[in-house]
Design a binder for these strands. Structure first.
Lengths: 224, 224
DNA sequence: ACAATAGTGTCTCTTAGACAATATCGA
DNA sequence: TCGATATTGTCTAAGAGACACTATTGT
């Protein structure tokens, strides 16, 4: 039986300039040396407990980032996707606020808008598209976009994040009702976002028990 | 780099006696020779175009069944799940009417209720649970359960299938409204399900263009 | 005071569920 | 005709969106 190449690739997504961006790195080795690509690497049977572990390790090693949210996306495979031979890549995606990338990310990390990718090696374009599609879909009935915000954020900011991810405006009253129903946020006592010439907005944070756990709704946020 | 074992496993689900069952086979080889397990096998780099291809081939070879619906589920991995060593299994799930198993399935195929599994080898229990969970969830906002029916079926039958999969009763009027909105079914002219001592039910079939394509709703079927 | 955005009350419209009336079969 | 289940009509309740009113800041 021919050997199969086993790798992981991670689509690390963030929000920058009000649009979804993905982290890319210049490849240090062949194939595609010097080309921008998703952070990825071999699964190390000697040290990884599973492929999620491989994804965490790869992300940390190559970008310096540890993402609180990391989800398995899908597995991509075939004889043609990697010039080295028949390969499998277990794709993962992660969401972080832009600040995390700026603060913890290695300097060579690049951010590209997901809509303007071109010439990505392997099937990385397809992986990014699958990740974006999953995030869009899941955002419509879950608290997923919260992971794109920092520790503290206002409701208008959160709504704007949802709108960017979903790609359509959301009714303000409905949005606040939904978020209220989810009951995952708590106001930070006395903390307001000041500085702009309007009424300041209340700052919120995720309740402790929801830090590492998605919250789902049974009805979609925006049913059009 | 240590070699990694690459396999596929398929959770082939069907409805029998008004409950979800999964197809199991007695393993012909070690490890776990003679034990009931999911149909599965190595990915063959020489002949498979990708892992989906490997799943189709494995399912056809081991059970005799070709399922119109086959979806990648998730990838399971680690050093402990297979006694032969660090392994990866790309899990798939498929849905077929019971009649397909009875007619096309190899004689050694066994059907077990998904709630009564025990002692499955590898992490097959976990794979089945993930498959059932995915099917439950997806059924609440899609036409997925149609694949558990035959070519022709009545609306009461389809509703009963949904109810079995979802595990809860559905409002009849709402159900019919949803199915009507989906617009994926067409009545078979003049075909009624007779034989019982009540008003006969109209037989329906999937419109041709939806034969190989799921149909999604934006609002869940049963929001309870 | 004014412009701007935050936060909230409330009305309307859409959709889901309850209930029941009618339809059509075999016995 | 009766019992059983299919099919359909319609009323009611719940949820989503529209609109607008009040609140609070900097200028």
């Amino acid at each position: 039986m021919t050997d199969i190449i086993c790798t992981v690739d991670i689509a690390l997504l963030t929000l920058k300039d009000a649009s979804l961006h993905v982290v890319l790195l210049k490849r240090e080795n062949d194939p595609f040396r010097g080309v921008l690509a998703l952070p990825g690497g071999y699964v190390h049977a000697e040290e990884d407990a599973d492929t999620r572990d491989a994804a965490v390790r790869t992300l940390r090693t190559k970008t310096g980032i540890v993402s609180p949210y990391l989800e398995q996306l899908a597995t991509f495979s075939g004889p043609g996707r990697d010039p080295r031979g028949w390969s499998i890549s277990i794709g993962y995606f992660a969401l972080v606020p832009e600040a995390v990338i700026n603060q913890a990310g290695h300097p060579q990390v690049e951010l590209l808008a997901v809509g303007r990718l071109k010439g990505l090696p392997f099937d990385h374009q397809q992986i990014v598209e699958a990740a974006v599609s999953r995030v869009r879909n899941k955002s419509s009935y879950s608290s997923l976009p919260v992971y794109l915000c920092g520790d503290a954020f206002t409701l208008p900011r959160l709504q704007s994040v949802y709108e960017t991810v979903l790609g359509e405006p959301i009714n303000k009253v409905s949005f606040r009702r939904k978020i209220d129903e989810l009951a995952i946020l708590e106001p930070i006592a006395g903390a307001l976002e000041t500085g702009r010439s309007n009424r300041p907005a209340q700052l919120y944070r995720l309740k402790r028990q929801y830090r590492d756990q998605l919250s789902l709704t049974d009805r979609a946020l925006n049913a059009r």
